[in-house]
Every structure is written in structure tokens, then in C-alpha cells.
Amino acid sequence: MELPSYLKQLILLGRMKKRWWLFRPVDLFISLCSPKKKKQGLLIVRMDGLGDMVLFRRALERYPKIFNLKKKEITILGCDSWKSVATDIFKGYNVKTIDEKSFEKNPFYRFMISFWVKRQGFKIAVCDTFFRKTLTADSLILASGADQKIVSRPYISKKNKAEFSYYLPKYEKVISTGKHPLHEIVRHYNFLSKLSSKKIHPDQPVISWREKKPPIPKGRSFVVINFGSNEPGRNWPLENFLDIAKKIIDLGYRVIFVGSKNERKDKSVINGVFGKADFVDLIDKTSLPQLFDTIKHAKALVTNETGPGHMSIALGIPTLMIYGGGHDTTFVPYPRKLKPRNALFINHYMSCYQCLWSCPYRQSKLDPFPCIEKVDQQKVWKSLKNFLPKAN
């Protein structure tokens, strides 16, 4: 016998996270607030990392025509992690960035951001992110109070099924962008196609960036080594990067090592391997704009699967990206028709691909995932050597 609807609702609410209940008073209060002006314009919620933002950027240029709006009538609500480059990358659009982790954990911060979103009086709110969190992206869409709330159908698992069962019915339109796995660029354009009721073919990632000298001494042409990431498991072993760097130097290039504060622990090892004439240490020494300046002037980038790697491809720089199987074909490699000639993706296939990084085979959270650790160094070098322009 089928349960009554009110019992289904009670069961659903009982499966929600404790933090969802904690934020109920905040979210309910925001729903009762009024916008400060007549509803107008479009809000696009992008609670993305840097790489996701890069893959979305070119699709954004289709939004003004589809919604019959000027760029200045469109607001991108993004993440503080790429705040420093937002003005340059999103010229002509309004941009507001937030600390998405604080929004998901701090009730007062959540209230202030949600109140700002509601008071803007957006007529339309959109989010086409496939892998997203209800306590950030979906909560912001609802907080907008927009007349039209349009989202993509997300990735639904046992862990988030109850949450999305609550949120999805509250939208005016939920668009399916395709079965998993499917590359994010393709998803963005599937979303646009259904919005416009006509097929819109995907574009290769391209981003314009300023022309400014990188923060390095004058000298020979250089190759950038980006050996870290936001997850230790996705890092190809450091000793492999060091061996590749030595071979690059033998070709006549300098090597520039870049990274965040997470990679500072490796500085002494790297500095002990290379001489000053062949090597520049920019680990934890650049802002994000300066990192982009450096990549833009490089002859090539060798990288783990990271946001800077996607940005390098979008800038047209020869880029070799080492990747694993957790999100295979979702972010990398790019589909054949969308892969620029300057991009190379190197991997080691394992039967456990598509694990969403839930890996049972590594010993600790600090170890690399086996599918990344086993990427063959000779394969990487052979590919890179054929890919590198001749040194000046």
C-alpha cells in the first residue's frame, strides 16, 4: 500500500542533514523578505572551482541572446577562490563572489549572503551545475525568490537523494543535460539547447587574459610545472615531476615550479635539485592573476588535473595534464571535437574508473590514487617531448 503524501514528506525531512535543520530559520526568514526593487535581470549561480568556471566561461556568451538581456543585466554569483580574476574574465557582467564553505556552515554569513541575493530582485535564477550541493547552489537559487528558477537535473546518489527530492520540485524548470558520465562542456551546451529550443553546438574553451609580464627574472624560455592540486590523491609523485623537469632543462628551457601553500613542504627538496640558472621557485609566491600571467608566457605547462591546467588550455598554451579515473570523461579528457590541439591528457586506465574518488586502494589520504601514481613517466616524457616547441 502506498504511503500518504504527508508521511512521505515526514520521512523525507527526517533524512535531511542536521545543518539543513540548523539553517531552516534563516532560509525561512529570507523567503519572507521582499526585494528592494522590481524584479529584473538574471542570476547565474556558479559555486565552482576554478576549472569548472573555465569550462563554463565560453557557454556564458550565449546567455544574453537566449534570455534577451544585456551583459550588464546578468549577475554571476561565484566563489571567492577565483575572485581575484573575475573582473578580467567576466568583463561586462556583474560579478559577486562568496566564501561557499562559510555559506554552508556559518548561519550569520548565510543570512547576510541570502539577504543580499533576495534584495537584488532577480527575475530569473539559473544553475546548470551537475555536481552540486543543495546547501550552497540550490539554497541560493531558492533564496533569490526569482519568478523563474531554472536548474539542471543534478547527479543524484543515495547520500543526496532526500535533499534533491525536497529542492527540485520547487523550481519552475528542471532540465536534464544527459546521463552520467558526460563532459561538463557538453552539459553546458545541452542546457543551453533546451533553454533555447534549438541545438547549440559546444565551443572549445577559450579565455582572453591580460598582457602583463610574469613575476620571474629575464632569461631563457620556460616551462611551468604545476605539481600540486587541491587533493593529495590526485598528485602525480613529486619525484616524477622532478625527473621530467631535468629532461626539460636538458632541452634548453628553464623550469618554473608553481603551487599553493599546500606545496610549501616540498620547496626544500625542489630547491636542492636545481641550480638558479635553470629553475625559478614560485611556489606560494604568486597571486592567481600572477599565476595566469606566468602560464600565458610559458612554452608549455605540465600539470595534474587542476584549475590552472584548464586555464592554460583555454589560453592556448601547450598543456600536458596527468589525470586519474575518479571523474573520467566528466572533466578530462575533453571530447575529441572539443580538444584543442594544444592539449594532451595522459592517464593509466584501471577497471575501477568512475569511482568518484571513493578509492579503496590507497593506504592513506595523503597517498596518490593508484590510477595516478601508475601513470608512466616515459609515456609522459615522450608525449611532452613531441609537444614542446624548440627552445630558443
Rank of each mutant, 00 (worst) to 15 (best):
L3E: 11
L7G: 03
L7W: 10
L7E: 13
K8Y: 11
Q9F: 13
L10H: 08
I11H: 06
I11E: 10
I11G: 00
L12W: 07
W21P: 00
R24P: 00
I30T: 02
I30Q: 02
I30R: 02
S31Y: 00
S31V: 01
V45Y: 02
R46N: 06
G49I: 09
G49S: 09
L50Q: 03
G51E: 08
M53S: 04
R62Y: 14
I66R: 05
K71H: 13
G78E: 01
C79Q: 11
C79V: 07
D80H: 07
K83T: 01
K83Y: 02
K83I: 00
D88M: 06
I89D: 01
Y93V: 03
N94M: 06
K101Q: 13
S114Y: 01
S114I: 00
F115K: 14
K118L: 14
G121M: 04
F122Q: 05
I124S: 02
V126A: 11
F131N: 10
L135R: 15
T136Y: 01
I141S: 09
A146H: 09
I150Y: 11
I150D: 12
I150R: 12
I156N: 09
I156G: 08
Y166V: 13
K170L: 15
Y171S: 02
I175K: 10
G178I: 11
R187S: 10
F191E: 08
F191H: 09
S193Q: 03
S193H: 03
K194T: 11
I200E: 13
P205R: 04
I207T: 12
R210W: 10
K212S: 13
S221E: 15
I225N: 02
S229P: 03
S229C: 04
P232C: 09
G233T: 13
P237G: 08
F241M: 05
L242W: 03
I248Q: 06
D250Y: 08
L251G: 02
R254E: 07
F257W: 08
N262H: 12
N262P: 00
K265C: 04
S268E: 15
V273L: 11
V280S: 11
D281H: 08
T286Q: 07
S287T: 14
P289C: 09
P289I: 07
P289V: 04
F292Y: 14
T303Y: 03
E305I: 01
P308W: 14
H310I: 03
S312N: 09
I313F: 01
A314N: 04
G316L: 07
P318R: 05
I322P: 07
I322W: 08
G324I: 05
H327R: 10
D328Y: 15
T330M: 11
P333Y: 01
P340Y: 09
P340D: 08
A343D: 05
A343H: 07
L344R: 15
Y349I: 12
Y349G: 03
C352K: 15
Q354T: 01
C355V: 11
L356M: 13
L356T: 10
W357Y: 15
W357A: 15
P360W: 12
R362S: 04
S364E: 08
K365R: 12
F369S: 13
I372A: 07
I372T: 08
W381P: 06
P389R: 12
